[in-house]
């Protein structure tokens, strides 16, 4: 009885978590060329958030409005150093080595969906550790699944405890109400 209810609960959560990503996956898009010009300043990027579709080819130019900043893009093996007043910036791929090369733009295709932060990787002042922006690659499956999961946890927990109600004394870890 108890095991069955737990399984029911888990199934509800999983189903709820799957629905939004499934719905979103049918929407088309992607494969376009998208250009962005991101300006860094103490302690934020402008635009703070860029949204693209999976499969898009991104062309990103970088500039700094005040001091030297970095641009470390999570999950994409990209790290740049941006000096103020210079059109070019320095780029490297951390997995390939420490050397920077001067470039005009960084070009890559987004293959994974979700939220990836770009952070400053060059100490630039007091709030430097918190300087970051967001790249959202749609459809944002982790977020969609988690949102569905939230509804799922709400429904399944309430439902399961309700069904288990009479048996709550042994269903709870170890005991009953005094």
């Amino acid at each position: 009885m108890k095991a069955r209810l737990v399984i029911l609960g888990i199934v509800i959560v999983l189903v709820c978590a799957l629905i939004p990503p499934l719905v979103a996956s049918s929407s088309s898009g992607g494969g376009e060329k998208k250009e962005f010009f991101i300006k860094a300043r103490q302690y934020a990027y402008d635009p703070p958030r860029i949204t693209v579709n999976k499969g898009d080819e991104l062309h990103i130019r970088l500039a700094s409005l005040d001091v030297v900043h970095g641009f470390f893009l999570e999950g994409h093996d990209i790290d740049a150093q941006i000096e103020p007043g210079v059109r070019q910036f320095k780029l490297r791929h951390p997995s390939e080595g420490k050397e920077f090369t001067d470039v005009n733009e960084v070009v890559f295709t987004v293959e994974h969906t979700g939220k990836f932060r770009y952070r400053c990787s060059h100490t630039c002042g007091t709030l430097h550790p918190f300087m970051q922006g967001e790249l959202i690659v749609c459809p944002n499956y982790p977020f969609l699944a988690a949102s569905g999961g939230t509804v799922g946890v709400l429904i399944s927990t309430l439902l399961v405890i309700f069904l288990a109600g009479k048996k709550h004394k042994d269903a709870m870890p170890g005991g009953d109400a005094q």
Binding site: V13, E74, G75, H112, G114, K115, F116, R117, R119, P142, F143, A145, A146, G149, T150, V153, L154, T157, L158, I161
Partner: peptide
């Protein structure tokens, strides 16, 4: 860092479950 979101999702849903329970 790209995996923190998954960890955060699990933590938050776990919190919600315990809140309700």
């Amino acid at each position: 860092p790209e995996y923190t979101v998954y960890l955060q999702i699990l933590l938050l849903l776990f919190g919600l479950f315990f809140a309700l329970k």
